[in-house]
Amino acid sequence: MVIDKIFFTIITPIFAFAVGLSFMMIKLKVSARIERRYGPPIIQPIYNILKLLLKEENISHGVIFSLGPVIALAGSILTVLFIPYAGIKLFTGSGDLIALMYIMVIGSLGMALGAGESANPNASIGISRALTLMLGYDLPFVIIIISVVLYYHTTNLADIVAAQAHGHWTLWSLPLSAIVGFVVAYGALGEHPFDIITAPHEVATGPMVEYGGKHLGFLVINHAFHIYIEIALFVDLFLGGATNVLWFYVKMFAVFFIMMLFDEVYPRFKIDDAVRFFWKWPTIVALISLIIVLVK
């Protein structure tokens, strides 16, 4: 039992990283094909990460600058442990959905601290945008979380997954929530049109402006985790999780694939427009869904 737990604790982050990385690989290729390009080799992200890690020289603006990516990665690893996947629920009993919401923040905090320490206004603006955007998508996000929780009468993510067994997905029972959840997860991933944070043409990749070498490598790894977290959470909440890894992966891939299509066609929001957007349509739809749950 304990051995099991330790084994899965070790294996889960690796799995999450692998999934995230695979999505990054696919994304490069798919977006190239949509743009009628050939695209880079499929394992290009691995080259990138390894290259960054193996840079001969790294620079640092201070301890927190270096710790930032580490804290971000640690936060992501921790978060991954709290998300049940494919019937494996590791720490889910120690922290429920609400705890998970705030554990997810640890990673952002590390990122924000490191970026702040880089003493670059572009980084600060990026973080300012990131946090503002976070406040933006948090409103619909908490509303759908509340409606899902009230629908299943539990905040335990594993129980929520269990309740969706045999095809009783939340997607079918609460379709409006699921749609909003998709928009929120998409916004949280920072793809177009919500890539305001890193917008290379405006703020020179925002928080990452001063990062290079292994620091940047860590951030890319973290991004892989990030993709996994957002989509796995969505799958757990709305698509009924899965009983085996393959099925889980397929569901995640389906979600990610739709996201990729959106990513390719949208331009970029202004930050205040993004917040206004999140506070308008997704919030209204989420509230409608919430009221439906309450009335039921």
């Binding site: 982050p13 020289e57 620079i59 201070g62 270096s66 921790l78 720490f91 070498g213 860590f218």
Partner: peptide
């Protein structure tokens, strides 16, 4: 969990070349 994750990430981090303070 956070402590362990942090230690793991930190060990990974110091495996790679040391950074120069600018």
């Amino acid at each position: 969990g956070l402590a362990i994750a942090f230690v793991v990430a930190w060990i990974l981090f110091i495996l790679f070349p040391k950074s120069r303070k600018v």
